[in-house]
Structures are given as C-alpha cells and as structure tokens.
Amino acid sequence: MAIFVDQNTKVIVQGLTGGQGRFHGLRNKAYGTQVVGGVTPGKAGQDVEGVPVFDSVEDAVKATGATASFIAVPPKAAPAAILEAARAGIGFVVCITEGIPAQDEARVYATLQRDFPATRLLGPNCPGIISPGKCNIGITAGEIAQLPSASGPNVGIVSRSGTLTYQALYELKEQGIGVSTCVGIGGDPVPGTSFVDCLAEFQADPETHAIIMIGEIGGSAEEEAAEFITNHVTKPMSAYIAGVTAPAGKKMGHAGAIVSGGKGTAQGKMDALRMAGVKIGLNPTEAGSLMAEIVHSLR
C-alpha cells in the first residue's frame, strides 16, 4: 500500500517535449514509474525515447489508459493544462509549475471542486510525490528515498517545501527507516491538496505507521492540520516548521510563505501542533531524530 500513487499508476507527462518535462519525465520512467505517454499539442505521432506523444490528454488517455498526469508546462499554460487533464478523466494531477498567479489558482481550484470533484490536484509549485519502489511523479531524486520495509514500521512524509522534503527523506534513509509515500503539497497560496487530505490518507493507509509533517510560515494550513490531528489521527507524528526568524510582510521565496498581520507565524503553528500531540523539532534534523525515536518505539 501507499497513498495516491503505486506500482499500478499509469502516468502521462503534459509537456513531455519541453526541457523540464523531458528531463523529469524520463527520470521518473527510469525509476520504474509507468510513464505511458506525453502530451504536446501538434506533436502527435512523435516519441520521446520511446514514450509516445499525443495531441491532447483525451487522446493519451484513450490510447494508454493513463490515470495520472504530471504537468511540467510554464505558468501561463498550466491552469488550462490542469483543467484539460481533469476533463479527460485523469484522477490524480501533479503540477510542479512555479509562478502561477494566485487568481488563476483560486479559479482552477473552484472549477475542480464544482465540475471535476473526482480529480485530485497535487501542487502547483510542488516537488511531486514518491511511493518508494513503486512510483515517482515529479522532481524528487528517487535514490534518496528509503524503500518501505514489509514488516514496518514505515513513515509517511508530507511537506510544503521541496528541499526540506528531500532533507526529510534523507534523514530517514540515514536512519534506515522506510518511507511509505512522500508527498510535497507545494508552497503556493492555493494548493490543490492540503496537509489534511494527506493526513487522512496516511491515517487510513495500513503501510504507514508514523507521519512526518514539514510546514512553513504563511496561511493556516498547519493550524487546520493540528485540529484534524487532534480529532482523527492516531498515528504518532513529528513535525518541523520553517521560518521562525522570517521577517513579517516578506514573501520568503515561496508565494505562500508570508507572515501578514501577525498571522501565519511559525511559533503559532508549532504551538498548535504541539497541542495536538505532535513532537516538534526545531530544525529538520531534530524532526528526523524525533521520528527515529518514534519508529524505534514502534519496532
């Protein structure tokens, strides 16, 4: 088991013929992911190292039976690409594109909710998702992810940040701890998939025994997660929140990482999670060590 994606997930890459799409799409394929096709309007009939290219997502789905899409197109084209995937019946859409205007993100999210409730969007501006040994969609270096062990315990990772996601994967690998699935939800203001969505899946996943969560300043997603954890999550958790020292009113690299009007501070988020029973590390390594302690107690 894993969450959202596994060895049976068939993936198409929207933007496979572009620089990013080709590089990461082929890496995902080399990892063992079933990358069954690509989509670039006007390039049907071509192939990228044996992966067939189609004009539209609809054509690609008909020909390949794809169930997931990896979107690696520029910000201007990404909103339409997401909706095209949803319209073609794709159930899981991963969008790594950084720089989509917030108004577009809000409209895409509302459109998916209203017209395509069966489609889940991960991202935008996210590193993607990896279920180690089964499926890797996005830009994560597969080799830093420890395979889950058949006997457990295994850890689920959910994070708003790319490099801190890798850091978490790496800390667990160093400790020899298996990972069930690692989800990067992205750093934008309107993520398609939230911490709460991932926590619910991890709680229900029999292969996941503990959860690491990595948050950052801005918004209230961590506070909502804390409330959900209190009421619905029984698996042990550790967490790290980046941005304790971030100045107010400045976007810290990610469009969504901003403390405004005294809201969205790291301290407030850490307090909320601590109240929910989550062990808080003051840096990523500490969150990893706390998770190692949790895992050893489960063994």
Partner: peptide
C-alpha cells in the same frame, strides 16, 4: 538551495545564537 531550506538555515543560525544577514535561495 530551495526556499524551505533557506528559511530553515536562517532558523538554525538563530537557534545557535547568530543572526542572518539575508535570505537567499539559489534554487535547485
């Protein structure tokens, strides 16, 4: 490299008693 890691670096510097001169993310 990475916004999250850059933010985290500021935090760790602060944690050990220093202060950061800047935030700088050079990307992946």
């Amino acid at each position: 490299n990475g916004a999250g890691l850059a933010m985290s670096t500021l935090d760790v510097v602060n944690q050990v008693g220093g202060s950061a001169a800047n935030f700088l993310d050079i990307g992946g």
